[in-house]
Amino acid sequence: MLPAGKVPSEILEKLFRTLGSEDERVLVGPGIGIDFAAISFGDKVVVASTDPITGAVEDIGFYAVHVNANDIAVSGARPRWFLVTILLPENSDEELPVRIMRDIDREAKKLGISIVGGHTEVTPGLDRPIVVGTMLGEKEGNPIRPNNAKPGDAIVMTKWAGLEGTSIIARENRKELEDVFGRDFVERAASLLDYISIVPEAIVAAEFGVNAMHDPTEGGIANGLHEMADSSGLGIRVYPEKIPIRKETMAICKFYDLNPLALLGSGSLLIAVKRDHARALVERLASRGINAAVIGEFLAEKKRVAVVNGEERPFPRPRSDELWKVFKR
């Protein structure tokens, strides 16, 4: 039986054998750890991405815009056009699709994105709404390829682990958490939603000059690191104590017995950059008000390890996002 969340990589590899007709204009196609597709249109490249929002109900429109925009930004392109499919449970209130689209409209305007199409329906068998977005962007010249990390590259991570997951749990389980931690704590945790966009730091990193970028989503920072290594055919050495985690995330993860490194991670950006340039990149990001840290390096040897108390230990890939443990209780 498959666990909830992303399909395991060994099954995805089988799916990648069924990709339709070949097209020489496709610069970046599907692959593990690949956030976007890129298609050549002469002097410009169109970048495309699609992602569903399945774990959130409150602010689902907000997440749909920013999660998809993030996938475009890691290519170095700016998100421009958005198509959205809204699937509603039976007997939904008529106000629900209106509220979802109102939120999508507001967030799209913030990023200068036009909503150009989509589909809405009431779907049997759902217990919550699902929003599936497709984002398009464009850039001049080749995109920053997600599979271009090099052996010896430093891994720079922006902001904090588990931001999206923390915000969703705080919003969906507000009453339960207020009884334990108090209203002010829950408000701070819920407000981590404000950090979801990685468009600003992706633009900074692209202008700085980096080898690869990746937007960790399901499976959090841990799965994102594995996906980056998969796409570039490399290993990783991670220093968990250097991974920034908010105290709100730590407290909620302890309460629900979750691993914060495997909690839904939108809002953080993973960057592969030459080792000698890593500190300068962190300082550049800090000068723009963006927290960042060097958390590891890519290895030519295809091992996946974490350094704990000075010793290398296996760094396993999460089987599923920790968020599902909360909503399956």
Results as ranks from 00 to 15, higher is better:
13 E>C: 14
122 V>I: 15
71 D>K: 12
229 A>D: 05
216 P>E: 14
80 R>G: 07
78 R>G: 10
167 S>K: 10
254 K>I: 07
223 N>K: 14
110 K>T: 02
58 E>W: 08
137 G>W: 04
323 L>T: 14
134 T>W: 03
127 D>G: 00
59 D>G: 11
221 I>P: 11
186 V>C: 06
159 K>Y: 13
193 L>R: 12
121 E>T: 07
81 W>V: 13
45 V>S: 04
71 D>I: 02
33 G>Y: 05
201 E>Y: 00
16 F>G: 08
204 V>C: 09
256 Y>A: 02
235 G>S: 14
240 P>H: 02
163 L>D: 00
258 L>P: 02
217 T>P: 05
225 L>C: 00
94 E>M: 10
152 G>A: 03
144 I>S: 11
11 I>T: 10
50 T>W: 03
253 C>F: 00
55 G>F: 08
286 A>F: 04
2 L>Y: 10
279 R>W: 09
260 P>Y: 12
304 R>A: 01
120 T>C: 13
299 L>E: 14
41 F>D: 05
306 A>E: 13
263 L>V: 10
289 G>F: 15
34 I>L: 11
220 G>D: 07
240 P>I: 10
96 L>K: 00
325 K>R: 07
71 D>C: 01
122 V>D: 07
125 G>W: 03
98 V>P: 10
126 L>A: 12
300 A>S: 15
87 L>H: 10
58 E>I: 14
